[in-house]
Protein backbone atom coordinates (compact mmCIF):
# COMPACT_ATOMS: atom_id res chain seq x y z
CA UNK A 1 0.00 0.00 0.00
CA UNK A 2 1.17 3.52 -0.67
CA UNK A 3 2.34 5.59 2.31
CA UNK A 4 0.28 8.45 3.61
CA UNK A 5 2.10 11.72 3.01
CA UNK A 6 1.53 14.87 5.00
CA UNK A 7 1.09 18.34 3.53
CA UNK A 8 1.72 21.48 5.60
CA UNK A 9 -0.83 23.65 3.87
CA UNK A 10 -1.69 27.33 4.14
CA UNK A 11 -5.03 28.91 3.36
CA UNK A 12 -4.90 30.87 0.12
CA UNK A 13 -6.91 34.01 -0.52
CA UNK A 14 -5.28 34.97 -3.83
CA UNK A 15 -6.66 33.74 -7.12
CA UNK A 16 -5.89 34.19 -10.78
CA UNK A 17 -3.11 33.40 -13.23
CA UNK A 18 -0.58 36.08 -12.25
CA UNK A 19 -0.87 35.49 -8.53
CA UNK A 20 -0.73 31.72 -9.00
CA UNK A 21 2.45 32.13 -11.05
CA UNK A 22 3.93 34.25 -8.27
CA UNK A 23 3.07 31.51 -5.77
CA UNK A 24 4.79 28.88 -7.92
CA UNK A 25 7.86 31.08 -8.23
CA UNK A 26 8.05 31.21 -4.43
CA UNK A 27 8.00 27.41 -4.11
CA UNK A 28 4.29 26.85 -3.43
CA UNK A 29 1.74 24.91 -5.45
CA UNK A 30 -1.86 26.22 -5.58
CA UNK A 31 -4.40 23.59 -4.53
CA UNK A 32 -8.11 23.32 -3.90
CA UNK A 33 -9.95 21.13 -1.36
CA UNK A 34 -13.60 20.16 -1.80
CA UNK A 35 -16.08 17.35 -1.21
CA UNK A 36 -18.42 15.90 1.44
CA UNK A 37 -20.87 18.75 0.83
CA UNK A 38 -18.62 21.24 2.61
CA UNK A 39 -17.32 24.50 1.27
CA UNK A 40 -14.46 24.69 -1.21
CA UNK A 41 -11.14 25.83 0.32
CA UNK A 42 -8.20 27.30 -1.58
CA UNK A 43 -4.79 26.19 -0.31
CA UNK A 44 -1.08 26.30 -1.03
CA UNK A 45 1.22 23.30 -0.63
CA UNK A 46 5.04 23.42 -0.54
CA UNK A 47 6.39 22.08 -3.82
CA UNK A 48 8.90 19.82 -2.02
CA UNK A 49 6.05 17.96 -0.32
CA UNK A 50 4.19 17.61 -3.63
CA UNK A 51 7.32 16.19 -5.27
CA UNK A 52 7.72 13.71 -2.39
CA UNK A 53 4.09 12.63 -2.76
CA UNK A 54 4.58 11.98 -6.48
CA UNK A 55 7.92 10.22 -5.93
CA UNK A 56 6.39 7.88 -3.34
CA UNK A 57 3.22 7.26 -5.34
CA UNK A 58 0.93 8.34 -2.49
CA UNK A 59 -2.69 9.20 -3.22
CA UNK A 60 -4.03 9.96 0.27
CA UNK A 61 -2.51 12.86 2.21
CA UNK A 62 -2.88 14.26 5.72
CA UNK A 63 -3.37 18.02 5.66
CA UNK A 64 -2.11 20.09 8.57
CA UNK A 65 -1.45 23.76 9.22
CA UNK A 66 -4.14 25.97 7.74
CA UNK A 67 -6.63 23.10 7.78
CA UNK A 68 -6.61 19.61 9.34
CA UNK A 69 -8.16 17.00 7.11
CA UNK A 70 -7.54 13.75 5.26
CA UNK A 71 -7.62 14.26 1.52
CA UNK A 72 -7.41 12.23 -1.66
CA UNK A 73 -5.35 13.61 -4.54
CA UNK A 74 -7.90 13.61 -7.31
CA UNK A 75 -5.99 15.39 -10.04
CA UNK A 76 -2.51 16.70 -10.64
CA UNK A 77 -2.03 19.38 -13.31
CA UNK A 78 1.37 19.47 -14.99
CA UNK A 79 3.04 21.97 -17.27
CA UNK A 80 3.49 21.22 -20.98
CA UNK A 81 6.80 19.41 -20.43
CA UNK A 82 5.63 17.33 -17.46
CA UNK A 83 8.35 18.78 -15.25
CA UNK A 84 6.45 20.99 -12.77
CA UNK A 85 3.15 20.56 -10.95
CA UNK A 86 0.84 23.53 -11.60
CA UNK A 87 -2.16 22.68 -9.41
CA UNK A 88 -3.61 19.99 -7.17
CA UNK A 89 -7.23 18.93 -6.77
CA UNK A 90 -7.85 17.43 -3.32
CA UNK A 91 -11.10 15.86 -2.11
CA UNK A 92 -12.09 15.23 1.49
CA UNK A 93 -12.13 11.52 2.19
CA UNK A 94 -12.72 9.00 4.99
CA UNK A 95 -10.46 6.01 5.46
CA UNK A 96 -13.21 3.49 4.61
CA UNK A 97 -14.72 5.51 1.79
CA UNK A 98 -14.50 3.97 -1.67
CA UNK A 99 -12.62 6.10 -4.17
CA UNK A 100 -12.26 5.77 -7.92
CA UNK A 101 -8.54 5.48 -8.60
CA UNK A 102 -6.24 4.52 -11.48
CA UNK A 103 -3.37 2.23 -10.50
CA UNK A 104 -0.46 1.45 -12.77
CA UNK A 105 0.29 -2.14 -13.76
CA UNK A 106 3.91 -3.30 -13.74
CA UNK A 107 5.03 -6.50 -15.45
CA UNK A 108 7.19 -8.91 -13.48
CA UNK A 109 9.17 -11.87 -14.77
CA UNK A 110 10.13 -13.22 -18.14
CA UNK A 111 7.48 -14.49 -20.53
CA UNK A 112 8.33 -17.91 -22.06
CA UNK A 113 6.66 -16.72 -25.28
CA UNK A 114 9.57 -14.36 -25.94
CA UNK A 115 11.87 -17.38 -26.34
CA UNK A 116 9.51 -18.77 -29.00
CA UNK A 117 9.82 -15.71 -31.24
CA UNK A 118 7.18 -13.62 -29.54
CA UNK A 119 7.21 -10.11 -28.16
CA UNK A 120 5.50 -8.92 -24.97
CA UNK A 121 3.12 -6.09 -25.73
CA UNK A 122 2.00 -4.12 -22.66
CA UNK A 123 -1.33 -2.80 -23.92
CA UNK A 124 -2.96 -1.33 -20.81
CA UNK A 125 -0.63 0.41 -18.36
CA UNK A 126 -3.28 1.51 -15.86
CA UNK A 127 -6.32 -0.05 -14.23
CA UNK A 128 -9.28 1.89 -12.92
CA UNK A 129 -10.75 0.49 -9.70
CA UNK A 130 -12.87 1.37 -6.70
CA UNK A 131 -11.09 0.71 -3.43
CA UNK A 132 -11.08 1.97 0.17
CA UNK A 133 -9.08 5.18 0.53
CA UNK A 134 -6.90 3.61 3.21
CA UNK A 135 -5.91 0.67 0.99
CA UNK A 136 -4.98 2.23 -2.34
CA UNK A 137 -2.17 0.18 -3.87
CA UNK A 138 0.80 2.07 -5.27
CA UNK A 139 0.98 -0.34 -8.22
CA UNK A 140 -0.14 -3.81 -9.27
CA UNK A 141 2.58 -6.33 -10.05
CA UNK A 142 1.54 -8.69 -12.83
CA UNK A 143 3.45 -11.95 -13.10
CA UNK A 144 4.05 -12.88 -16.76
CA UNK A 145 6.19 -15.96 -16.10
CA UNK A 146 3.46 -18.18 -17.59
CA UNK A 147 2.67 -16.03 -20.64
CA UNK A 148 3.14 -18.22 -23.71
CA UNK A 149 3.15 -17.19 -27.36
CA UNK A 150 -0.26 -15.93 -28.62
CA UNK A 151 -1.59 -15.72 -25.07
CA UNK A 152 -2.90 -12.66 -23.27
CA UNK A 153 -3.88 -11.59 -19.77
CA UNK A 154 -7.08 -9.61 -19.34
CA UNK A 155 -8.10 -7.19 -16.59
CA UNK A 156 -10.53 -9.74 -15.15
CA UNK A 157 -7.68 -12.22 -14.46
CA UNK A 158 -5.74 -9.86 -12.20
CA UNK A 159 -5.79 -10.39 -8.43
CA UNK A 160 -7.03 -7.16 -6.94
CA UNK A 161 -6.29 -5.96 -3.38
CA UNK A 162 -8.86 -6.78 -0.70
CA UNK A 163 -11.99 -4.63 -0.93
CA UNK A 164 -11.24 -3.39 -4.43
CA UNK A 165 -13.58 -3.75 -7.40
CA UNK A 166 -12.59 -3.35 -11.01
CA UNK A 167 -14.05 -0.45 -13.03
CA UNK A 168 -12.08 -1.17 -16.21
CA UNK A 169 -13.74 -3.62 -18.61
CA UNK A 170 -12.90 -7.16 -17.49
CA UNK A 171 -12.21 -8.27 -21.04
CA UNK A 172 -9.66 -5.49 -21.63
CA UNK A 173 -6.27 -6.96 -22.56
CA UNK A 174 -3.47 -5.89 -20.19
CA UNK A 175 -0.58 -7.71 -21.79
CA UNK A 176 -0.18 -10.08 -24.71
CA UNK A 177 2.61 -12.06 -26.25
CA UNK A 178 2.40 -12.01 -30.03
CA UNK A 179 4.65 -12.98 -32.89
CA UNK A 180 7.08 -10.32 -34.10
CA UNK A 181 6.12 -9.08 -37.54
CA UNK A 182 8.93 -8.31 -39.93
CA UNK A 183 9.49 -4.58 -40.40
CA UNK A 184 9.11 -3.24 -43.94
CA UNK A 185 12.50 -3.07 -45.59
CA UNK A 186 13.86 0.28 -46.64
CA UNK A 187 14.30 0.42 -50.39
CA UNK A 188 16.29 3.64 -50.27
CA UNK A 189 14.09 5.16 -52.96
CA UNK A 190 11.51 7.67 -51.76
CA UNK A 191 8.70 8.40 -54.17
CA UNK A 192 8.23 12.14 -53.71
CA UNK A 193 6.10 12.52 -56.81
CA UNK A 194 3.12 10.71 -55.25
CA UNK A 195 0.42 13.07 -54.06
CA UNK A 196 -2.61 12.36 -51.88
CA UNK A 197 -6.13 12.42 -53.25
CA UNK A 198 -7.80 15.83 -52.97
CA UNK A 199 -11.27 15.55 -51.46
CA UNK A 200 -14.05 16.78 -53.76
CA UNK A 201 -11.77 17.63 -56.65
CA UNK A 202 -13.03 14.97 -59.08
CA UNK A 203 -16.68 15.85 -58.50
CA UNK A 204 -16.18 19.55 -59.20
CA UNK A 205 -14.20 18.75 -62.36
CA UNK A 206 -17.06 16.56 -63.64
CA UNK A 207 -19.60 19.27 -62.92
CA UNK A 208 -17.59 21.78 -64.90
CA UNK A 209 -17.35 19.33 -67.78
CA UNK A 210 -21.13 18.71 -67.89
CA UNK A 211 -21.88 22.44 -67.92
Amino acid sequence: MSNKESFHVQLRDVKGTRKSRALRASGLVPAVLYGHGQECVNLTVPVKEVDAMIRHGSRVVELSGGITETAFVKEVQWNAFGTDVLHLDLTRVNAKELVDVTVRVELRGDAPGTHQGGMVNHVLHELEMMCPASDIPEKIDLDINHLELDQSITAGEIDLPKGATLVTDKSAVIVQCSEVHAQPEETGVVDTSAEPEVIGRKESAEEEGSE
Binding site: V190, D191, T192, A194, E195, P196, E197, V198, I199, G200
Partner: peptide, 12 residues
Protein backbone atom coordinates in the same frame (compact mmCIF):
# COMPACT_ATOMS: atom_id res chain seq x y z
CA UNK B 1 8.39 5.04 -47.83
CA UNK B 2 7.93 8.38 -46.15
CA UNK B 3 4.57 9.09 -44.53
CA UNK B 4 1.95 11.40 -46.04
CA UNK B 5 -1.85 11.77 -45.80
CA UNK B 6 -4.04 9.56 -47.99
CA UNK B 7 -6.61 12.26 -48.65
CA UNK B 8 -6.45 16.02 -48.18
CA UNK B 9 -8.91 18.89 -48.55
CA UNK B 10 -6.34 21.21 -50.07
CA UNK B 11 -3.03 20.42 -51.81
CA UNK B 12 -1.23 23.46 -50.47
Amino acid sequence: MAMMPKRVKHRK
